[in-house]
């Protein structure tokens, strides 16, 4: 059994310690907001936070999360009121929506470390997350909007 804390809730999971965190979150914890896109850290749909740092959960072994706090899209806010979630709704960013958990979780780290990101900062922070629907310009707008509205909360 491995002890894991996800969104401040304790879990005991049977998965092998080398199991990618993504599948533990989805299958053992039942939190499906974090998505599987490529399995090789190329697309970023699986991005979560580990002690406040972004991680591609599809290549992060469960053992690397032990003793740390895992945050998924479900744990970002209890009621979709994080500034980025609000901005995402205001700009109507998502199309199919599949990558957007990863996009938002990445953007959270950006705004945590940079209250007023430039276009270049957004490029550097967000180019790891692929959006096949091509919503990048709206993501950019939403990040700027969230930054103007106070960023983290």
């Amino acid at each position: 059994m491995t002890r894991l804390s996800v969104n401040r809730k304790a879990y005991e999971v049977e998965a092998d310690p080398n199991t990618p965190l993504l599948w533990v979150i989805r299958d053992d914890c039942g939190l499906t907001g974090t998505k599987f896109g490529c399995g090789v850290a190329q697309c970023g749909s699986c991005t979560v936070h580990l002690d406040g740092e972004a991680r591609r959960s599809c290549v992060t072994p469960l053992k690397a999360a032990v003793g740390k706090e895992v945050t998924t899209i479900e744990g970002l806010s209890p009621d979709s009121t994080h500034a980025l979630q609000k901005a995402w709704i205001e700009v109507d960013v998502p199309q199919c929506g599949y990558c957007q958990s990863g996009q938002i979780m990445s953007a959270v780290i950006l705004l945590k470390e940079n209250k007023k990101p430039t276009d270049a900062d957004i490029d550097a922070a967000m180019s790891g997350i692929v959006c096949r629907c091509g919503t990048y310009n709206r993501i950019r707008d939403a990040i700027k909007k969230a930054a103007m509205n106070g960023g983290a909360k």
Partner: peptide, 18 residues
Amino acid sequence: GVYGMKCNTCHQDQNLEG
């Protein structure tokens, strides 16, 4: 690295199979 694009966002403490 920077923001959500740090080296350890993807690179682990060991090589991964494949």
